[in-house]
Simulated assay, not measured.
Amino acid sequence: MKLTLRLSILAIFSAFFMTTTAAGQTDAQADAAAVAATAGLPSAAGAPKPGWRNQFGAGYIANPKFVGSDEYNTRVIPYIELRYFDESGTRFFANVPQGIGGYAYRKRERASGRFFNVGASLAPGFNVRDDSIDGLDEIGISTEARLLLETGGRRWAASAVFAQDVGSGHEGAYVDLNLSWRGRVGAGSGFYAVGPVLRFGDSTYKDAFFGVSPEDSIETGLPAYDADAGVERVGVQGLVSLPIKKSRWRFTAILRGSQLIDNAAASPIVVDETQFFFLSAVTRSF
């Protein structure tokens, strides 16, 4: 089964815009906010003047063939992002991992760097299942309605994403919780971020990926299994993003390791409870 990149992960394809002027440094902060937001690391950094800042690039990813697989797919993927900034940070966005959305409420304290955002989006859900396991139905790309809650300061950020499938994918709901600490790498615009990630799923979501119905049991030979609501996985995610010399190009890499737990780990579908994801990307700001 092919499991594409989770919504908070494809995101790191964004890049800093590197200049040496004061205005350019503010532009770089706006691009840093785009990198952070699409990686699930919210930021309230604003732009020197309202407008769109666009990101284009390509990446290489390695991720499990299905949730619980011990085999990995590798592929090259493109990325395009459109993001509208004002002095309070991101107002609207459109990209593959986050979908199309914006923020209805934003509070920003310039002195302390503290912020709190409330937003929403309609986005694709890329947790899918193909026909790799004979007898189990495929799960296609879902269409998810999401509520976004974000807070943080200059060196840390936290977010909660509440997602409900409104299409024909997993048909369930889940919550992603992320916490990260950030810092600079070198004297330029390089930065790193690291922190824990956690996902909860309702019974519909968990059964879609980990359950085996009595009918499926007959078809597959696997024991029947119900996956109740609860924690799906816990893990640690880290990323590093570096400018490529003094250009608008940037290199970004991310590595996530997570552990399936509770009834997700006990599913007869699961081969390996430990799951890894890796992505590297080169992007440019326009």
Score class of each variant (00 low, 15 high):
residue 77 I to C: 03
residue 77 I to H: 03
residue 77 I to L: 14
residue 78 P to W: 05
residue 78 P to Y: 03
residue 79 Y to D: 12
residue 80 I to Q: 02
residue 81 E to V: 04
residue 81 E to D: 12
residue 82 L to V: 12
residue 82 L to N: 11
residue 83 R to T: 14
residue 84 Y to M: 04
residue 84 Y to S: 02
residue 84 Y to L: 08
residue 85 F to S: 05
residue 87 E to S: 15
residue 87 E to F: 06
residue 87 E to A: 14
residue 88 S to D: 14
residue 89 G to C: 06
residue 90 T to G: 04
residue 90 T to D: 06
residue 91 R to N: 06
residue 92 F to T: 04
residue 92 F to R: 13
residue 92 F to G: 06
residue 93 F to W: 04
residue 93 F to R: 00
residue 94 A to R: 06
residue 94 A to V: 10
residue 95 N to I: 09
residue 96 V to G: 07
residue 96 V to M: 14
residue 97 P to M: 08
residue 97 P to E: 04
residue 97 P to C: 05
residue 97 P to L: 01
residue 98 Q to A: 15
residue 99 G to M: 10
residue 99 G to R: 03
residue 99 G to V: 07
residue 101 G to A: 08
residue 101 G to Q: 04
residue 102 G to T: 00
residue 103 Y to M: 03
residue 104 A to T: 11
residue 104 A to Q: 11
residue 104 A to C: 05
residue 105 Y to M: 13
residue 105 Y to T: 07
residue 106 R to G: 06
residue 106 R to S: 14
residue 107 K to F: 08
residue 107 K to T: 06
residue 108 R to V: 14
residue 109 E to S: 09
residue 109 E to L: 10
residue 109 E to I: 02
residue 110 R to A: 14
residue 110 R to Y: 07
residue 111 A to Q: 11
residue 111 A to D: 15
residue 112 S to L: 07
residue 112 S to T: 15
residue 112 S to W: 07
residue 113 G to N: 08
residue 113 G to Y: 01
residue 113 G to P: 00
residue 113 G to C: 06
residue 113 G to A: 09
residue 113 G to L: 06
residue 115 F to L: 10
residue 116 F to S: 12
residue 120 A to M: 15
residue 120 A to C: 06
residue 120 A to P: 02
residue 121 S to A: 15
residue 121 S to I: 05
residue 122 L to F: 13
residue 122 L to I: 14
residue 122 L to K: 08
residue 123 A to Y: 04
residue 123 A to S: 14
residue 123 A to D: 03
residue 124 P to H: 07
residue 124 P to Q: 03
residue 126 F to N: 07
residue 126 F to I: 04
residue 127 N to D: 13
residue 128 V to P: 00
residue 128 V to I: 13
residue 128 V to H: 00
residue 129 R to N: 05
residue 130 D to N: 14
residue 130 D to Y: 00
residue 131 D to L: 05
residue 131 D to C: 04
residue 131 D to H: 10
residue 133 I to W: 02
residue 133 I to C: 05
residue 134 D to V: 08
residue 134 D to Y: 02
residue 134 D to H: 05
residue 135 G to H: 01
residue 136 L to S: 03
residue 136 L to H: 02
residue 136 L to Y: 00
residue 137 D to S: 09
residue 137 D to R: 00
residue 137 D to K: 00
residue 138 E to V: 02
residue 139 I to L: 12
residue 140 G to I: 03
residue 140 G to N: 10
residue 141 I to R: 05
residue 141 I to A: 08
residue 143 T to M: 07
residue 144 E to I: 02
residue 146 R to H: 05
residue 146 R to K: 15
residue 147 L to A: 15
residue 148 L to S: 12
residue 148 L to Q: 14
residue 148 L to P: 01
residue 149 L to M: 13
residue 149 L to P: 03
residue 150 E to M: 13
residue 150 E to K: 13
residue 151 T to I: 09
residue 151 T to W: 12
residue 153 G to F: 08
residue 153 G to I: 06
residue 154 R to A: 14
residue 154 R to F: 01
residue 155 R to K: 15
